[in-house]
Amino acid sequence: MDWMRVKQALLERAPEALGVHIVMVLVTISIAIAISVPLGVLLTRPKYKNLGVVVLNILNLLQTIPGLAIIALTMPFLGLGLKPTIFALTVQGLLPIARNTIAGLYGVSPDVKEAALGMGMSHKKILYEVELPLAMPIILAGVRTATVYVVSVGTLAAYIGGGGLGDLIVTGLAMFWPEFLIVGAGLGAILAISLDRLLAYVEYRITPPGLGT
């Protein structure tokens, strides 16, 4: 083990790589939430209920395509860099969030919805004041799953010049520098675990009091 290289990897390369990786994950997850949650809401409305199965199947199919394949497939269209990376990662992040949004909304007791409707709450009010708050813990669990997933697949972005922690790993592999490998992969793991813990905390805070224990 060459400590100079560890130092080099940690101090010279890691800060930027980690920064890029975090930006990549945050942007991806934000876009995925912005698409998946409204999609999940739409697919649980009585009008579009039948579409739900179709859309979920399509998302399931997208999920089975390996991350690297999507990254490779998007390159011809979006070129190199962060843009195709974020596109590819977003596709991968959609399913867990959409699926949990749908499951969460279906999980809201029909009695509660019936009572809310019977009291004169509009469908919109019921969605915002009853359904979404009650489904929120499950939606957030989906966001957690997607986040951890995107952190790991994000390391592949280095192959199309997306940067991030993958750069360290690629360099390590190319130069036979295990120190770079360890620093890149280790930071990736730490990032995934910390984001997961952070979101778990948010989930705990956002769970409406009176629910669960």
Partner: peptide, 13 residues
Amino acid sequence: YVIQQIGLLPHRT
């Protein structure tokens, strides 16, 4: 409107 299952909003006091 009162129903058998009551339907109190569980996240509200």
